[in-house]
Simulated scan of single mutants.
Amino acid sequence: MAIPSLPEQTRDTPGSPAPLEHFNTAPAEEIRHTLLTCLHSLRWATRVAAHRPYPNLDSLLAASDEAAYDLTPGDLAEALAAETLPVLPDDAYRAAHMALGAAHAAYETKFGHVFAICLDGVPPSEAADQLLAAIRSRLTNDPEEERVVTAEELRRLARGRLVTSLRGAGNCATSPNAPAPGK
């Protein structure tokens, strides 16, 4: 197996490359496109793609994190422009949709960009509560504090989406503005 930490369902099948092997050998433009579905920052995608090949998934994720930590305010604005609000489950109460809509509007008014959050590990049944609690909490931040928190959430989103594109599983909210990772 090319990547020891990958789950059973991503093991090599005869005649097909392992996900990381494909990531390492695919044309740069294809990989940049894939990376832009994870985080819409050209600087981040170019940097991660330029450092191929990666010996293992952990090395790729470390490079992804490092590139995300180095994003400038302009890079963050570029990434946030492509983000959209996390989608609530269809069976969420109407009141939850209304409360989140109001909270999102207040957040965008205060900070001038969409609310970004990674919901990895949050069960779908708890997503609405987690989302509402997080947005209310973050509304108390000043703009600089929120820029730092938002950058961290974007880094987590990029990491989760990158893993999703290689493994085919995950629970990070995705942007409907871009094709779902791995599609």
Rank of each mutant, 00 (worst) to 15 (best):
A81Q: 11
A81S: 13
A81I: 03
A81M: 09
A81K: 11
A81F: 03
A82G: 11
A82V: 04
A82K: 09
A82F: 05
A82I: 01
E83T: 05
E83R: 10
E83S: 08
E83Y: 00
E83I: 00
T84A: 05
T84R: 08
T84L: 05
T84P: 01
T84K: 08
T84H: 04
T84M: 06
L85E: 12
L85G: 12
L85P: 09
L85C: 09
L85R: 14
P86A: 10
P86Q: 07
P86L: 04
V87R: 15
V87N: 14
V87I: 11
V87G: 11
L88S: 08
L88P: 03
L88D: 08
L88V: 08
P89A: 12
P89V: 10
P89C: 09
D90E: 15
D90N: 14
D90C: 09
D90M: 10
D91W: 11
D91L: 07
D91I: 08
D91C: 09
D91A: 14
A92G: 02
A92F: 00
A92W: 00
A92L: 00
A92D: 01
A92Q: 01
A92Y: 00
A92C: 03
Y93G: 15
Y93Q: 14
Y93W: 08
Y93T: 14
R94V: 04
R94S: 09
R94G: 06
R94A: 07
A95H: 11
A95D: 14
A95G: 13
A96C: 05
A96I: 00
A96D: 13
H97I: 06
H97Q: 13
H97Y: 10
H97V: 07
M98Q: 14
M98R: 15
M98H: 13
M98N: 14
M98W: 03
M98E: 13
A99I: 06
A99E: 12
L100E: 03
L100H: 02
L100A: 01
L100K: 02
L100G: 05
L100S: 03
G101V: 05
G101M: 01
G101P: 06
G101L: 00
G101S: 07
A102H: 12
A102F: 02
A102E: 12
A102I: 10
A103L: 10
A103S: 14
A103D: 11
A103T: 12
H104E: 06
H104C: 11
H104T: 12
H104Y: 06
A105G: 09
A105S: 10
A105W: 02
A105F: 03
A106M: 05
A106H: 08
A106C: 07
A106D: 10
Y107Q: 07
Y107W: 05
Y107D: 06
E108G: 08
E108P: 05
E108N: 08
E108S: 12
E108F: 01
E108L: 01
T109D: 05
T109Y: 02
K110R: 15
K110F: 00
F111P: 03
F111V: 04
